[in-house]
Amino acid sequence: MTTLWFVPPVFVKIETDGGRHGCNNAMAALEQLKRWARRGPRWHKAWTLCLSALEGDPIDRHVVRKAFVAAAKEAEMYLSPE
């Protein structure tokens, strides 16, 4: 399993308590995606890219991060960095 790091981290809401979580790699992003109730086309794209990256496919980290940000915005889970 390959770790694909995000710089800077992507901050998202935590649905259960309204807190915030900084995702700094594809595994953390995948864990957050699992928890979201709203799953649109951008969610599916981010899910696929995160899985592919973790399987070792040669995917640029910026592409995965950008897809995760788009999914977070689509699901209204994105929080701007402090």
Results as ranks from 00 to 15, higher is better:
A28N: 06
I14T: 13
G19S: 14
D60Y: 04
K66T: 13
C50T: 06
W5E: 15
L54W: 04
M1P: 14
R61W: 07
N24G: 13
I14C: 11
F68K: 05
T16P: 05
Q32D: 05
F68T: 06
E82A: 12
G18W: 04
R42D: 12
P58Q: 14
N25Q: 05
G19T: 15
F68M: 10
R35W: 02
F11Y: 09
A53L: 10
H44N: 12
S52H: 05
W47K: 07
L49W: 04
W47G: 03
Y78L: 07
Y78G: 00
D57C: 00
W47L: 07
P8H: 03
A75M: 10
W43L: 04
F6M: 08
G19N: 03
A37N: 05
L33E: 05
A46Q: 06
R61H: 11
C50V: 08
P8D: 00
V12D: 12
L51V: 03
K66S: 13
W36P: 08
K73C: 13
W47I: 04
P81S: 06
C50R: 05
H62W: 01
V10E: 14
V64R: 13
A46W: 02
W43F: 14
V69S: 04
R20A: 15
N25F: 04
W36T: 10
G40C: 12
V63R: 05
P9C: 09
E31K: 15
E31P: 04
V64S: 11
V10W: 07
M1W: 15
K45A: 09
S52E: 13
T16I: 13
R20E: 11
L54I: 15
P9E: 05
F11P: 10
G56R: 09
Q32N: 09
A26Y: 00
G40V: 12
V63H: 09
P58N: 14
E55G: 11
H44T: 10
L51G: 05
H44M: 01
R65M: 08
W36H: 01
F68N: 09
R35H: 06
T3W: 11
N24K: 11
E74S: 00
A72C: 07
K45I: 06
C50K: 04
R35S: 13
P9N: 10
L79S: 12
P8C: 02
A46E: 01
